[in-house]
């Protein structure tokens, strides 16, 4: 994996293309909690060789568009913007892919509350038997962060 700074992102991918990597496989984000990592996978179609290019975004979460290098990057950049909150600079199409409005937190960030996981009663929350409920510890479903389930007037242990 080739690590580059966010400032060198577009230049690095242009270089990859010049080196024969003619196909953009995909771009995706990874929420590293303290930062967002963006990874692009490019392929040389003549011998099916793949390379990964990675960059870690600064706190401004800004990245230059590479649609002038790989036209197909537009779709993934729209994903990065909508789902990871990345501000893409210099791309013509900024429309969200799945959401109909701009409202709501980026869906793929670990800090984003998934309403369905909070509002749907977790079947694993209840101890199987009612009479054992009194002394059980409260359990939390996987993927539901501490604090998501705090009810008004109660404490989440």
């Amino acid at each position: 994996m080739r690590q580059v700074s966010a400032a060198d992102w577009a230049a690095e991918l242009a270089e990859r293309q010049a080196a024969g990597f003619d196909f953009l496989d995909m771009i995706t984000g990874v929420d590293r909690l303290e930062s967002i990592e963006v990874i692009a996978s490019v392929m040389r179609s003549s011998d099916a060789t793949c390379e990964l290019v990675s960059t870690t975004l600064d706190s401004d979460r800004t990245l230059a568009s590479i649609t002038h290098v790989y036209a197909g990057a537009g779709w993934y950049e729209r994903e990065l913007a909508e789902m990871f909150g990345v501000l893409i600079l210099g791309s013509a199409d900024q429309r969200p892919l799945l959401r109909r409005t701009d409202e709501g937190a980026p869906t793929m960030l670990k800090s984003t509350v998934l309403g369905a996981r909070v509002l749907t009663p977790w079947p694993g929350d209840a101890d199987a038997s009612d009479d054992a409920k009194a002394n059980r510890r409260r359990q939390r479903a996987v993927g539901v962060a501490e604090g998501w389930l705090v009810e008004e007037g109660s404490t989440d242990d």
Partner: peptide, 21 residues
């Protein structure tokens, strides 16, 4: 044994279990 492990591990929360002691 109504241990609830399957219920809690199910990724889509599609198992429901009730028991008494």
């Amino acid at each position: 044994t109504s241990c609830m492990i399957c219920v809690r591990e199910c990724p889509v929360w599609c198992i429901d279990l009730a028991s008494h002691t």
